[in-house]
Amino acid sequence: MAIYRFRISFEDFDEVVREIDIKSTQTFEDLHKAVHRSTGYSAEKSSSFFVSTDNWIKGDEIAYLPVQRKIDRGVALMENSKLNKFIEDPHQKFYYIYNFDRPFDFHVELIKIILETDPNIEYPFLVKSTGEAPKIIDKNNTGAIAVSANPVSTEFDFLNEMDFVPEDTEELEAMGGRGINAEEKADDDTDEEADDSDEFSENDNYEDEEYKEEDY
């Protein structure tokens, strides 16, 4: 019985790599679950392997927890599909999509065929693990917020960000240099209000006279 060594890498995170040894007579479901023991993801998600060309063009599908339309179409199921039935090349490739609800795409490549099993190893066996699998945010848990190890306030302080300085700061400092005090400022405000009041009164009288002339 041969052992297949597969190299599994994220399509968008090629620095994250897993290498897994698995018996040729084991199934795609066994490989699927072995991958996610190594990533920490839940294996109980609708996923599929696709027989692939060297250019990662997807061909025949082997599915796990497929939707009904795929079942009606007669898609191959991972639990019933042995790996050796789909290996036609010593460097056979599979395109793998994990979790169709929030998918991650993987490249799966056969990189070695070992002709003898090791009786001391339980297969599938993780041979190599490089890089940390990216985090998954549950779309159903909309209230969840990722918090960093050293959390900082995420509120936007508009005034500080814009280096805001009140427009009258220089004027106040200048007035302070001349010794202006609160009482003088209050007196000035009172005089201005009185002037405004007189102006409005004159306008009112003018309108009344104009109204009377029209009546006349």
Rank of each mutant, 00 (worst) to 15 (best):
K45M: 10
E213L: 10
N181D: 15
S197R: 12
E116S: 14
N181V: 07
E88N: 13
E171N: 06
M1R: 02
A174I: 05
W56V: 03
E155I: 14
D12Y: 03
E173V: 08
V127R: 04
F86H: 09
Q92P: 03
E88A: 10
T154F: 08
A63K: 02
S148L: 10
D54G: 13
E11M: 13
A182M: 13
E155C: 07
I71H: 00
D195V: 14
T142A: 07
V127F: 03
T39H: 00
F13P: 02
I145L: 09
D101I: 11
A133Q: 01
M175T: 02
Y211H: 08
F50I: 09
V16T: 04
V51K: 01
G59K: 01
Y216G: 10
K139M: 12
N84I: 07
L115Q: 11
D196R: 14
F28L: 09
T25Q: 08
V51P: 00
D189S: 10
I57W: 02
Y216K: 09
N80R: 13
R102M: 11
E29P: 00
V165K: 10
I8Y: 01
D198L: 15
E109T: 06
T142K: 14
S129R: 03
F94E: 02
I137A: 05
I145P: 01
I3N: 00
D105H: 13
F164P: 01
D215G: 10
D191F: 12
S197I: 09
E171K: 11
L115Y: 06
F28Y: 11
D30L: 06
I145N: 04
Y41Q: 05
Q68S: 07
N99Y: 03
E155K: 10
D191I: 15
I180C: 03
K212S: 06
G59W: 00
N205D: 15
V147L: 13
Y211Q: 05
E15M: 06
E193Q: 14
I114E: 15
Y41L: 05
N84S: 08
N160L: 14
S201R: 15
Y98C: 00
A2T: 10
